[in-house]
Write a protein that binds this DNA or RNA. Structure first.
Length: 847
RNA sequence: GCCGCCGUGGCGGAACUGGCAGACGCAAGGGACUUAAAAUCCCUCGGUGGCAACACCGUGCGGGUUCGAUCCCCGCCGGCGGCACCA
């Protein structure tokens, strides 16, 4: 009988739903396992074929863990606040609540059709007031601890979305989402002091099982630098402090630079100390005008103005040091001022050359680099010169000695700086969590009482942002006007809402106890389920969501709300699913290729023709899926044509999970064939008890390999192993019941519908989903005799079959007895004999 | 520029810790079954030479270490991702 995947998949999906098969409850008698995938933003476009890659991978892990006896929590929900929904609502005059509801229903239907073993009883939605009550509650706690504050600040303002963006949302000076130019604006914004956690966010990575590229990227993003602050006295009678990682080069400092925004510049201007005030003001104005985009795209030619009338003095040599302003020094990093050491810093070297400033060598290079010709920045090899008490030291020693000297003489101190900036937390938008703060003329900003949470979003119909980029809520005076919780007088609500990252910064906690009305999650649930054991998600969230949620979690840990200091024990990341370029030569059907080659005189001609017709893109066989290329794959279509089990299998078989992989529609057939062959095998059951001797080694090996590969996220090779096993069953005339049941057990995490059906047909009444995972015997994973290679000087001369436990002398003797080997060795001197257990023999000969 | 990752057949990809390169699958070619097609089954499938056993070449390029290198080292070339004047 042919496999009717439609009927079988519908049947089992209904059973899982009716029986709540994958519902998890706290059970102290079992070890817990919390598997998590990033919950989706329910967009109007529906599920993309990329979503199931992550979901299926951890579904396989979760299913196997259940069979291994773990109490598994594998939840799903909706990260539903956000701009696309609001924009859609705005354009079509539909309430975003309704748009969200519709999109969620669609996503949920699509996910259920994939047979994912989510515990749907724990479904959450960030736009649900019972959920965002706790998002707001966390904000209030941050406020109470001084980690949320309002600040007048220049912010990134997207001219397209008319909204303030976080640094992380600005890519190459344009809006990450809409691509419009981003300009600077001064606004009063809520900020979160993530910088207070910068050090721990780096250091605590050490105890976690994150894939390396994730922890490296987070470390680089946070950007910890060890260095020193150095104080320079100025002729204005004040002290200008700089930050440097190279305090060893202080004797080489020939000038200083402050950023155009530095407070001292204004102070000196106001005091009339600057003789070229007009020139300085003009430079300040020019720098302020530049957008991020211009700062990024303009060539890096150094510009600047020397401040006439104020000079500094070197703390070590007491030499006068001129001061410049230049926009190559950033106001927001360090102290906003630097010391210029042109001999040993590439940027300073360039600046000094342009302005004709002296270049003094203080670190001598072994290779004799002339610092007037080229900058010398190597810290590993140089020796200090021209540097008083540092002469003769290495860079490392000199740094220490100088830092000590600065501290002892009150001229500076050691200092650690971070690139990470505080998190701009305000958005001038409607579709987000209202920030639970009110402003009173008398009392200033006041938090609303926790008893008033959730502060609900009012129902409105006009979603357009205000003229100056204010939130649409700013027009709704009936909602804004309230009373001050402090003095009872009139007050107004904050009209900005939270960014989309807010709701996703703690959602994994809510899954643990999703319906709790009294806390974000109950203590027992938090103690039992924390932390997330395995979290998989996209690389694009590494420096955004992943970092933000680690910050919030550490804060919640500090105030005693959660039991662990880190939210996720293990983090992995899947590669993107790409599409095949239908215009690339290699992707054309063979007959079309032949026709083109014939028509254009060879392959080169055919390719040139395609490039001419379709543009440069035609040279790339693998591209992002796009509507214009027509290579977008819809999961619904795949499920309808091949079934969910085939789709799941292909998603996993497509390639290395960590790497991007192209979706090849033709290859899906191979997975379908594999399942059909397994289905057909149910008619080929042969007599026999247990596993037949001919298949025993393979069976044990397969159990080992499939189990290990699932744990290592290598589903592709696990499936390959199962294919080998199935091919072997066919080669042996079919399967015994035991051989077949073993196959169904191992395949269940990958193809749960079909295997449950076949399991039931074999007469089982209990669910395969909870049937214990098979064991293997390591001793039975190798054959009694094995084939090893015999090499002479690394070249294979023969293959011999020997007992698996053969010792080296016997193996070498057997190897030498081979005629081909004897011939190759004859008349030569044997210099070395190698036997690698179970692998090969290699004889090294001379002459 | 800096940091990280990656280059293996026509394609996706395997290969434990330095030990038989190309598992598994797709596509392709040939054959069987069929009135025919689909489906299914069997065979071939890195390159060159040879009837053949077999020989030689082959993991981006050039060197090196080693009995032995896809894997380690040095120097290049190409691609992807992140950061980008962070002192």
């Amino acid at each position: 009988m042919k496999y009717d995947f439609k009927a079988v998949e519908a049947k089992w999906q209904k059973i899982w739903e009716d029986e709540h098969t994958f519902h998890a409850e706290i059970d102290h008698s079992k070890p817990k396992f919390y598997a998590l995938v990033e919950f989706p933003y329910p967009s109007g476009a529906g599920l993309h074929v990329g979503h199931p890659r992550s979901y299926t991978a951890l579904d396989i892990v979760a299913r196997k863990k259940r069979q291994c006896g773990y109490n598994v929590l594998y939840p799903m929900g909706w990260d539903a606040f956000g701009l696309p929904t609001e924009n859609f609502a705005l354009k079509n005059h539909i309430d975003p609540h309704i748009v969200t509801e519709r999109n969620v229903a669609r996503f949920k239907g699509q996910l259920k059709a994939l047979g994912l073993s989510f515990d749907w009883d724990r479904e959450i939605n960030t736009t649900d007031p019972d959920y965002y009550k706790w998002t707001q509650w966390i904000f209030l706690q941050l406020y109470k601890k001084g980690l949320a504050y309002k600040k007048e600040t220049t912010v990134n303002y997207c001219t397209g979305c008319k909204v303030v963006l976080a640094n992380e949302e600005v890519v190459n000076g344009v809006c990450e989402r809409c691509g419009s130019p981003v300009v600077h604006r001064v606004k009063s914004q809520w900020m979160l002091r993530i910088t207070a956690y910068a050090d721990r966010l780096i250091s605590d990575l050490d105890g976690l099982d994150y894939i390396e590229r994730v922890s490296t990227q987070q470390k680089n993003w946070i950007g910890r630098s060890y260095g020193a602050e150095i104080n320079f006295d100025t002729s204005a009678g004040d002290t200008l402090t700089v930050f440097t990682t190279r305090c060893d080069t202080l004797y080489g400092c020939t000038y200083m630079v402050v950023s155009p925004e530095h407070a001292f510049v204004q102070k000196w201007l106001d005091a009339g100390l600057i003789q070229n005030a007009d020139e300085v003001r003009a430079y300040q104005a020019e720098a302020a005008r530049k957008s991020d985009f211009e700062r990024t795209e303009l060539n890096r030619e150094k510009t600047g103005v020397r401040i006439e009338g104020v000079t500094a003095h070197s703390p070590v040599s007491d030499e006068p040091v001129p001061i410049f302003i230049s926009d190559y020094v950033l106001a927001t990093y360090g102290t906003g001022a630097i010391m210029g050491v042109p001999a040993h810093d590439a940027r300073d070297w360039e600046f000094a050359k342009k302005f004709g400033l002296p270049i003094i060598e203080v670190v001598h290079s072994q290779d004799g680099v002339d610092v007037n010709e080229a900058v010398f920045t190597d810290v590993a090899t140089g020796t200090l010169v021209n540097s008083g008490f540092l002469n003769g030291l290495s860079v490392g020693e000199a740094k220490e000695k100088m830092a000590d000297w600065l501290t002892a003489n009150g001229r500076g101190r050691k200092q650690v700086n971070f690139k990470l900036r505080d998190w701009v937390f305000s958005r001038q938008r409607y579709w987000g969590e209202p920030i639970p703060m009110v402003y009173c003329e008398n009392c200033g900003w006041q938090p609303i009482p926790e008893s008033e949470l959730p502060l609900r979003l009012p129902a409105i119909t006009d979603f357009e942002p205000g003229p100056d980029g204010e939130s649409p809520l700013a027009r709704h005076t009936e909602w804004i006007n309230t009373t001050c919780p402090c003095c009872g007088g009139p007050a107004v609500r904050e009209t900005d809402t939270m960014p989309q990252w807010a709701g996703s910064s703690w959602y994994f906690l809510r899954y643990m106890d999703p319906h709790n009305p009294d806390a974000l999650a109950g203590r027992e649930a938090l103690d039992y389920w924390s932390p997330v054991d395995w979290y998989n998600g996209g690389m694009e969230h590494t420096t955004l969501h992943l970092l933000y949620s680690r910050f919030w979690h550490k804060f919640l840990y500090d105030i005693g709300v959660v039991p662990t200091s880190e939210p996720y024990q293990k983090r992995t990341s899947h590669g993107m699913v790409l599409g095949l370029n239908p215009h690339s030569f290699v992707n054309l059907p063979a007959d079309e290729q032949r026709a083109l080659v014939a028509e254009h005189g060879g392959e080169a001609g055919a390719k040139a023709y395609l490039v001419e017709k379709y543009g440069e893109m035609a040279e790339h066989p693998v591209v992002k899926m796009s509507k214009s290329l027509g290579n977008v794959v819809n999961p619904d279509d795949m499920v309808a044509e091949y079934g969910a089990d085939t789709l799941r299998l292909y998603e996993m078989f497509i390639g290395d999970f960590e790497k991007a992989a192209p979706w090849n529609p033709a290859s899906v057939k191979g997975c379908k064939r594999f399942l059909d062959r397994i289905w057909a095998l149910s008619d080929k059951l042969v007599d026999g008890d247990g596993i037949r001797p001919a298949l025993e080694t393979l069976a044990h090996r397969t159990v080992k390999k499939v189990g290990e590969d699932i744990d290592a996220l290598k589903a592709n090779t696990a499936i390959a192993q199962l294919m080998i096993y199935v091919n072997a069953l066919y080669d042996n005339g079919g399967a015994t019941r035991a051989e077949y049941e073993l196959l169904l057990q191992l395949l269940n995490p990958f193809a749960p519908h079909m295997t449950e059906e076949l399991w039931e047909q074999l007469g089982h009444t209990e669910r395969l989903a909870y049937h214990p995972w098979p064991q293997y015997d390591p001793a039975k994973c190798t054959e009694a005799t094995i084939e090893i290679a015999v090499q002479v000087n690394g070249r294979i001369k023969a293959r011999i079959r020997v007992p698996a436990d053969i010792d080296a002398p016997a193996a070498l003797a057997a190897a030498k007895a081979e005629p081909a080997v004897a011939e190759a060795v004859a008349g030569k001197t044997l210099v070395k004999e190698i036997y690698v257990k179970g692998k090969l023999v290699n004889l090294a000969v001379k002459g």
